[in-house]
Design a binder for these strands. Structure first.
Lengths: 180, 180
DNA sequence: ATTGGATCAATGTGATCACAAAATCCAGAA
DNA sequence: TTCTGGATTTTGTGATCACATTGATCCAAT
């Protein structure tokens, strides 16, 4: 990927392309080598564990804050997203699976009215992006994650401890698969 | 603050200055209005509470991870930093107080070997920067925070629950002062 | 055929320019 | 004195350029 190429792709000059790339680098979504060349960052196992821990810390908190504001329409919408996830899993559409999976989380967290936490979480997602992609590719999921159903159930029941636990499991589950 | 002015200050052109500013904006340290003008972001009480919550979530975790690696030299160094904090407090040097205060935390967290968490925490600090400045200015501290002494004591004793509690208190203490 | 270096193309960085939009300023009138 | 409206300056954005550095390619010698 070259700056000039990116610029030409989007019909702009080098300057905006450079700025966008630098922002991605600043957020950790891309890493730039010593010579300024960009590449997808290689995540060590330690860093992965760290990022998963951050998710495990923040996302249950976001869910807790969303819980009192979660009305029925939201829960139904989450269930619909789960259906989409199942669909992607059936079609072996990895990138769709990941995208709808994150959409599930984001939809829930948007209700938390905590933009800073959400932004932080999305930064972590961005950094996990390439690795998640590689991970789910060799996983061959075939159904919606069990924890997502637990999350919806806990929301319906207003069960905060159960919600936090389900989220923690859902978030750290991916790591366990990679630790093999 | 103008881009051209910043560039001239550092002896560079507009381009690097612009890039630096945009990076600060991306990290939340500055906010840019609709017309691209930069300004120090106005933190609402809700956002402040949120940022404090993030600190309360991540920083005890960082301290926990640093605890098993904390040798005596580190603890002595933390105590020395506490002395510096007391010095700044005595001289009513607000910005020095804040800086050494954060240096205390960063010194501890560096031992955690968790760069992603540390980066995340520093992002939060960056966002809190202007508000902390205003807060401590009208506070007129005169001595080192009690919680810092508790932190050092917990480190010496290897008391993880105490360490987490002390950190949580130290981090959320500032918020309480502002909620007045 | 392989390897070594030398040349060359390509890319990122920083500077400068043109332009549009926004802010400031100044004059004039109520 | 204060408000208003236009003119001027300022400022951010995007484009283009010059340059240094890096990676690649190619040719020659073993």
């Amino acid at each position: 990927m070259t700056l000039r190429g990116i610029g030409k792709t989007f019909g702009v000059s080098m300057t905006p392309a450079r700025e966008a790339v630098r922002r991605l680098v600043a957020d950790g979504g891309l890493s730039l080598s010593s010579s300024g060349r960009v590449s997808t960052p290689e995540l060590s196992n330690e860093r992965l564990e760290e990022l998963a821990s951050i998710r495990a810390l923040i996302e249950p908190e976001l869910a807790s804050r969303a819980l009192p504001r979660a009305h029925l329409a939201l829960i139904d919408r989450l269930q619909a997203i789960n259906a989409s996830i199942a669909e992607c899993a059936a079609k072996h559409d990895d990138v769709g699976y990941i995208r709808t999976n994150l959409e599930f989380h984001r939809t829930l967290y948007l209700r938390a009215q905590a933009p800073a936490m959400l932004a932080m979480t999305e930064t972590v997602w961005l950094q996990l992006g390439p690795t998640m992609r590689a991970m789910y590719a060799r996983l061959n999921r075939t159904e919606v994650p069990h924890n997502h159903r637990l999350i919806v159930a806990a929301l319906r029941a207003g069960d905060e401890p159960g919600l936090r636990l389900a989220l923690r499991s859902d978030v750290t589950q991916g790591l366990r698969l990679l630790a093999v």
